[in-house]
Amino acid sequence: MKEDIVLDLTELPAHGLGTASPSWWGTLAFMLIEGTGFALSIVIYLYLMSLAPRWPLGAPPPDLLAGTTLTVLLLASLVPNILVARWAREQDLRKVRVGLIVMAVLGIVPLILRAFEFPAMHIKWDQNAYGSIVWVMLGLHTTHILTDVIETLVLTCLMFSRHGDTPRRFGDVSDSAMYWNFVVATWLPMYACLYWIPRL
């Protein structure tokens, strides 16, 4: 069939940001999948609680210190995280580099605190159903912090390399920042569930 050129796209950018970026949609879909996983783990926790004669099973309520410190730290990390996202939108390479280093540190410190949260539960994963579900919930969220820290470290290296200064990589940084917001947001119901429901 004969062709009739009605539109010339030569002027379009070679990469889109936000909803014009496939990796933005990929991050969003990944958040949907992982968010479902978090929601299911909370549902399982509440289901087991509804069956148990008392709750927590065979253990005192968890110690608050490590988990609460971690929660405060995660909430505080949102400030530099949102700043990094803003600097990435403005494509300010120097600020993004500094921000990514800060975010890498703010990802590693929660991992250290998390190491103290597991013993604060006063139960092992194989002791009973309560032990199983709290280790699953903590482990699931730890995996998310860990993968985001690795992602942040890789992006930090990338932004210091010759590949860094392009809109595509700034888009990666802002997608990564969006994902960290998700990691923090999912922790809040998990924290309430793990630490405060046993105290009700």
């Binding site: 004969k2 009739d4 050129i5 010339d8 379009l12």
Partner: peptide
């Protein structure tokens, strides 16, 4: 193909 019977409108670039 019914509404654009003569030529297919396309994008270039």
């Amino acid at each position: 193909l019914w509404t654009e019977a003569t030529a297919l409108p396309v994008v270039a670039g």
